[in-house]
Design a protein around this nucleic acid. Structure first.
Ligand code: MN
Ligand code: MN
Ligand code: MN
Ligand code: MN
Lengths: 226, 226
DNA sequence: TTTCAAAGTTAGACACGGCTAACATGTCAA
DNA sequence: TTGACATGTTAGCCGTGTCTAACTTTGAAA
């Protein structure tokens, strides 16, 4: 009943975890949401959900969506931990840019053993966050909370520190990176134009105008909130 | 016709390469030899050989065995390069012992990109040999020749340097490693008992008696041959 | 030259993880 | 209350890679 999940199953579990913990998302996740996120057909998802349920990793009811079980959540966190530690490793030890790490990690996460990931963790000094600012679950597989808030929820003008960038798109990450927009960077939210207008920020006294899409990907913390 | 080989196909190609380049082996490889090496049934091998032939990686004739094509050889060497560089990386950068590296590399070799392996290669200073003394194909995928000879072909007494240990068995490697028998170690072949008897060697003035099986795994070079 | 054991292939099955086409259900707005 | 449309499932297919059982071929010893 309970073998090691396949690489495919692991990606489903990660998707389930991400979708069920997204801001204002319910615990139960739609078939369609999973299909969209993984670029698979809906019937494929239905079929895998049944299989994951049989393995005790997911609780699923026809037409009612799916939710991770405790076991499923653990497996998801194990893979997420691997993914993010691999990203840090590639970035710090092998010169990968933060826009390159995701795709490589997406494959390696299914091939590295628990032992290897622990040795990488130690070699890196037990990092808490990956290059995008995503929190890395510890060995005990508890997810660290990320006390950062979306840039769009800040009242301008305000000095903030970037904590996390919620994108894996390498073009987006390259564009942001070239402008110094990365976790740890101090920026100033200057103005938020109304009617879904752009956000004006200043970084190193240089003004940058971000569309709402981009701006909503930035998670920040006001500098005086520390 | 020619997609990227699957992980399974890559293991078949490696097996084909190893079996066809083994000492006193013909270029054509038996179905049974592959099945034994990969612990698979013979029908599975027949079926994969047909598939590899369709992909242009193997030339195969019913009841006549199989041989790698030029393309197949290239693919095999690409995977072998990955395997051995991963072994070096795990050993030197992450504290793996030489008895632990093989199993981990066996999975990772199918997941690392060509880009990643080149960065690992550079980070390691372009090593020529893996922890077992196996030669690492260069970026151009040419196999370096290993000018070492089997310990059993040496006329005792003779001072030799160990160049290579032809085993992936972790129990064997641990046993040898504990006694200092590893690539680079200088040893003295003291005596070769007749009638398939043991080989007596001395390392750090300590006598060790090796059965023929173990002794045949050691590849050495006389110290004055340099 | 015959025979027979080892090696090899074919046939047929299965699990997995995809897909499309067709059908079923749920939900929201009229 | 009732469509209509979005969402979800079922049915049936496919490719990959494995297996066992049964049959065929090879090649070497007698
Ligand atoms: Mn993945
Ligand atoms: Mn990340
Ligand atoms: Mn392998
Ligand atoms: Mn090796």
């Amino acid at each position: 009943m309970n073998r090691t999940p396949s690489a495919s199953a692991e990606d489903y579990l990660k998707a389930l975890y991400a979708l069920s913990t997204a801001p204002d998302a319910s615990e139960r996740v739609n078939t369609k949401a999973i299909a969209d996120r993984l670029s698979l057909s809906q019937p494929s998802v239905t079929s895998m959900l049944k299989s994951l349920q049989k393995q005790g990793l997911v609780s699923y009811a026809s037409y009612r969506g799916a939710a991770l079980t405790a076991d499923g959540r653990t497996e998801a966190l194990r893979v997420i931990r691997k993914h993010r530690l691999i990203e840090v490793f590639l970035h710090r030890m092998l010169g990968y840019s933060w826009s390159e790490v995701h795709d490589e990690a997406e494959r390696l996460e299914h091939a590295v053993s628990d032992t290897l990931i622990d040795r990488m963790d130690a070699a890196l000094g037990f990092p808490d966050f990956d290059p995008h600012g995503d929190p890395i679950p510890g060995r005990d597989l508890t997810m660290r909370s990320h006390d950062a808030v979306c840039l769009l929820e800040i009242e301008p003008p305000c000095e903030v520190t970037i904590k996390r960038v919620m994108s894996q798109d390498s073009a987006v990450l390259d564009w942001l990176g070239q402008r110094g927009i990365r976790p740890g960077a101090p920026i100033r939210l200057v103005h938020l134009s109304p009617f879904d207008g752009p956000a004006e920020i200043a970084i190193d006294d240089r003004a940058i105008h971000l569309g709402r899409g981009l701006a909503s990907m930035l998670r920040v913390r006001p500098v005086d909130a520390d």
